[in-house]
Write a protein that binds this DNA or RNA. Sequence first.
DNA 1: CGGCATCCACTTGGATACTG
DNA 2: CAGTATCCAAGTGGATGCCG
Lengths: 123, 123
Amino acid sequence: MKTFSSPECQGAHRAMRDTLDVIGGKWKLVILSIMLQRKWRFKELVREIGISPRILSKELQELEMNKLVTRTVCNTRPITVEYEVTPHSRSLETVIQALREWGVMHRQEVIGKKEPAQVEAIV
Amino acid sequence: MKTFSSPECQGAHRAMRDTLDVIGGKWKLVILSIMLQRKWRFKELVREIGISPRILSKELQELEMNKLVTRTVCNTRPITVEYEVTPHSRSLETVIQALREWGVMHRQEVIGKKEPAQVEAIV
DNA sequence: CGGCATCCACTTGGATACTG
DNA sequence: CAGTATCCAAGTGGATGCCG
C-alpha cells in the first residue's frame, strides 16, 4: 500500500506500527499498567482508571482479542466478571515499567525538577 | 481532580499518563523511531513516514517543545530545515527498540507464527 | 522547500439510559 | 454488576492551496 525506500527501515517502521496497533491509543497501556498489579472486576477498573464503561468494554475486548487479558464470568449472584492479564501480557511488564520511569525522568528533565513528593500535593 | 484510592497505584498511573502525554498518540513513536537513525529534512520525513505535512509539523513542534528533537534552519537557497533527535531523546532508544521487538514477538504469538520473511510478501 | 490555513471526513470518547 | 445502544462533542488527520 505504501512504497518505502529502504527495506531495513521498513522493517523497524512496520514493527513499531504493529506494536502501536495493539497497545497504542489513549488507554491500552494505562489499563495494562494497572491490570498487571492484580485481578480486577469491571467496575473496579472503571473507577480506578477513570474511564467510561463503554470505552473500557471496547478496550478490554481488543486486549482480549490480542491475548493480553482474560475474561472470567463468576457465578456470583449479581454476576461479576474478573479480568486478568495473561502470561503473554507479562512480556510487556518491563517495557511498561521503563515507560513509567521515563515519564518521571522526563518530567524532571523538561518540566523542571520540582515534582513535590506527590504524597499529598496531588489534589 | 480525581480521587484515587491507593497512592502508590496513583503514582504508577500518573507516570504512565505523563509518558503517554509526551510520546503517545498515533505518530510520536513512529517519528522518533525513524528519527533516531539520522538527521532528516522535513520533506524526507513526510515521505519516509507517510504522514501529511500538516500533522508532521504539529508533531515535530510538540516533540521540540518536549526537547526531544531540534530544528535547524539551513542557509541553503530554497531554505531547508534539518530535524535531529536530542541526547534526551536517546533515553528512549532502548524503550523503542523493546517496543519494536515486542511487535515482532507479538505477531508470532497471536497472529500466528508465519511472518513470511517480509522481503517480498508485504504487498 | 518548509509549513501554515482552511475545509472536511472519520474516529474517539464521554454521558446517559437501558437490558440481562 | 456487567455491558450495550444511542446521542453528541471534541479531537484527529488527510487534501488542497498558498505564502515566505
